[in-house]
Amino acid sequence: MKIPKRSIRTAKQLFKSCVRDGQLDESLVRRVVTALLQSKPRDYLAVLMHFKRLVKLEIQRRTAVVETAIPMDPAQAEQLRDTLERNFGAGLRFVFAHRPELIGGMRVQVGSRVYDGTIRAQLDELKAAFGAEWRA
């Protein structure tokens, strides 16, 4: 679906109004969506689509995905939360996942930034280095 420029602009403005102190206010987001659906202004679906995309990107940016080969103990997890919040600012959403295929170590992704200390990643890198040309 092609979203008109005007709708993109409106969605951006609405999105900005939902940000309080650099954090996305979920209650405001809900209010915006219900208000839009009730009043149904022109192109409201397109506005909603783009609004959803902006919210999705913002959530992704503020989500830390922590993947480990074995389940983390709570103390360790707490320590990790502290470190990450110190680096990326408060208000991060944390998702902890248990993935045995990583073999060992931990992979943390915050937004598009990835810190990968898993054995799987090192093996993959080794594999790529063997198959690589001079350029890689």
């Binding site: 992704q109 598009s112 930034r113 990835v114 810190y115 990968d116 200390g117 090192q122």
Partner: peptide, 10 residues
Amino acid sequence: KTGLLKQDVG
């Protein structure tokens, strides 16, 4: 051993 892979992904 502790070397972290720091990447930017999309």
